[in-house]
Amino acid sequence: MTVDRRRSSPTPTAPVRIAEADGRHAVLAFAGDLDAPALRVLEELLLDHRLREPTAWTLDMSALEHIDLACAYALLRAVTGTPEREVAITVRGARPAVHRTLRHAGVDTVVTFAP
């Protein structure tokens, strides 16, 4: 007798997604762990055409458990990479460990933190 051990697992959710975006404001929602395996997803998302116009971004990190330095640096590069266009960025709901990693990467110099 053969036992089929395959299980249907739910499709994993992306650690970051664009929750909303219009011409003025974009909200990026983060969840779970943002680490090396997710770096490419993050970098591709930060190049999304919907993020080109907004002059204000909100990074909702209330569901983010962990971010590694590589991903924090990717955020910093995205924010500082286009000096001809200024974007006001607010980080909401960052847990202490996430806040600490963002601070270590220097992200705190270009964003505002909100509860």
Rank of each mutant, 00 (worst) to 15 (best):
S9K: 08
I89K: 03
S9G: 09
T109S: 10
R52H: 14
T80V: 11
T101D: 04
R95Q: 12
L51V: 13
T112Q: 13
R85M: 05
T11M: 14
A14R: 15
D108K: 03
T101W: 03
P83R: 00
A74T: 06
M1W: 08
V110K: 06
A72Y: 04
E65M: 02
S8W: 12
E20S: 15
F30T: 00
V3L: 14
R77E: 11
E65C: 01
I89H: 03
L76S: 04
A63W: 01
L69N: 10
V27C: 12
A88W: 00
R50F: 03
P115L: 09
D108G: 08
V41F: 05
V87Y: 01
P83A: 02
F30N: 00
T58M: 07
E43Q: 15
A97I: 15
A31I: 04
P12Y: 07
V91F: 09
A36F: 08
I67M: 07
A21Q: 11
R95H: 12
E65N: 08
V3G: 07
A105Y: 00
R77N: 07
V3N: 11
A70Q: 14
T80M: 06
E86K: 10
E65D: 10
G93S: 05
A19S: 15
L45F: 11
R17K: 13
V41C: 11
D108C: 09
D22V: 12
V79I: 15
S8G: 09
R100D: 12
R95L: 14
I18N: 10
R5T: 15
A94D: 07
L59P: 00
T2N: 14
A19W: 11
A74E: 02
H99C: 09
A26C: 06
E43I: 04
R50P: 00
D68Q: 11
A29W: 01
A70M: 13
P10N: 14
T90E: 06
V3A: 13
E20Q: 15
V110H: 04
E20W: 14
L28A: 07
H66S: 02
G93L: 01
R6M: 10
D108T: 10
E20G: 13
A94V: 11
R7F: 11
E86D: 08
R24W: 08
D35C: 10
L42R: 01
V79Y: 05
A94N: 09
G93T: 01
D108H: 15
R100N: 08
G106P: 05
W57T: 04
I18E: 08
G81R: 00
G106H: 07
A14T: 12
R7Y: 08
D60F: 02
G81L: 04
T55D: 10
R7E: 14
A97C: 13
A114N: 07
R103S: 15
T11K: 13
V16G: 00
L75M: 14
R5W: 12
D33V: 09
D35Q: 08
L45S: 09
D60R: 05
R85D: 05
T90M: 02
E53K: 09
V91G: 08
H49F: 10
L64C: 06
R52Y: 06
A78F: 11
L64R: 01
P12A: 15
W57M: 05
L102Y: 03
P96M: 10
R5D: 10
D22A: 12
E43M: 09
R52M: 12
P15I: 00
D60E: 13
A74N: 03
